[in-house]
């Protein structure tokens, strides 16, 4: 097996927060507590979990917008975080992001052409004809016409804006694209179009997706593997079939049970039967079943991620 494209190893992110009261000291917010995963070329890995579980912070660390407190990120075996990491230009050609809200993610004062040509120029492409060729090709790839390049964002619908956002993320031809809830702000009727577009582009360009989502029906559609995060830790990790058909951790089961999809609801009984006969590892307890909101100001209790089936891991309290 070839080395993974992106390796995240024991990533921690902590924020110092001013304490309460006038003279309160500083407290530490434990946002991400030891996340490790690999992302292979052409793979879609999803990180799911509720708001505040640290999934966005993890993504921002990979994008270089948030400094990691501890741990390392490597891209093609080279350091991708901290002092030995790449400059912002190199990083931009490796990782890009599609944002959640297509209304806030496009500069209202720039035409589509400006939004797409400025990054190309910044990255050293000077020829006007090459720039306009690349923009036209990119627009065609995301299903827009060249004439639409000279319009402003407010002249587009939400779905079209998200297409523009995707075009902007791909214009520098990155290998990894972080998808931050790529369809959750869109009308249900156009979600499928955008999902299919993302899948087409992934296949066509061999992209690796790191998707952040709490919408499990989208995750089920797109992911090869899934990380379930809770309170800054991965509580369960596995292939999408393992996660959706034999969820082990109670938190994962609760997430899946919450999918408002009749199809899934029909299959749910079948699923819970299968997950019932999971090997319960030495009677060890699951860490945080997700029924209680975590205290983000407390360092999480020691625990470990245990692999109980090939590629399927679940977090259990430390062995005593």
């Amino acid at each position: 097996m070839t080395a993974p494209l992106l390796q995240v190893d024991d990533l921690h992110v902590r924020f110092p927060i001013a304490g309460g009261g006038l003279l309160g000291g500083r407290r530490t917010l434990y946002a991400v507590n030891g996340i490790s995963f690999d992302l292979a070329k052409g793979e879609c890995l999803s990180i799911v979990g509720e708001s505040g579980c640290g999934k966005s912070t993890t993504a921002l660390s990979i994008l270089g917008l948030q400094e990691a407190t501890e741990g390392s990120i490597r891209y093609r075996g080279q350091p991708f975080s901290g002092a030995g990491g790449p400059g912002r230009m190199q990083r931009a050609r490796a990782v890009q992001m599609v944002f959640q809200d297509p209304y806030a993610s496009l500069n209202p004062r720039q035409t589509v052409r400006t939004s797409l040509s400025a990054p190309l120029r910044l990255h050293g492409i000077k020829s006007a004809s090459e720039i306009s060729d690349r923009i036209e090709a990119m627009l065609a790839d995301v299903g827009l016409t060249p004439e639409q390049a000279d319009r402003y964002p407010h002249e587009f619908s939400g779905g079209q804006r998200q297409r523009i956002g995707i075009a902007r993320a791909l214009i520098l031809e990155p290998e990894i694209v972080v998808l931050d809830e790529p369809v959750s702000a869109l009308d249900v009727s156009i979600r499928a179009q955008i999902i299919n577009l993302l899948l087409d582009l992934q296949e066509k360009r061999g992209l690796s997706y790191l998707m952040i989502s709490h919408d499990l029906s989208v995750v089920e559609h797109m992911s090869d593997r899934v990380l379930v995060m809770f309170a800054g830790q991965v509580v369960e990790e596995g292939g999408w079939r393992q996660i959706f058909e034999t969820p082990a951790h109670p938190y994962t089961r609760r997430l899946i049970a919450a999918i408002p999809d009749p199809d899934v609801a029909l299959r749910r009984s079948e699923r819970s039967e299968r997950s019932a006969d999971l090997p319960m590892l030495d009677g060890r307890a699951f860490v945080a079943d997700g029924s209680v909101a975590p205290d983000v100001f407390v360092r999480p209790a020691p625990s470990e991620l245990v692999e109980f089936a090939p590629g399927h891991k679940v977090r259990l309290a430390a062995a005593h």
Partner: peptide
């Protein structure tokens, strides 16, 4: 705003 974060990820200074 997303477009400022996008500019950061695109490598803008």
């Amino acid at each position: 705003q997303g477009y400022v974060q996008a500019a950061q990820t695109l490598g803008y200074g």
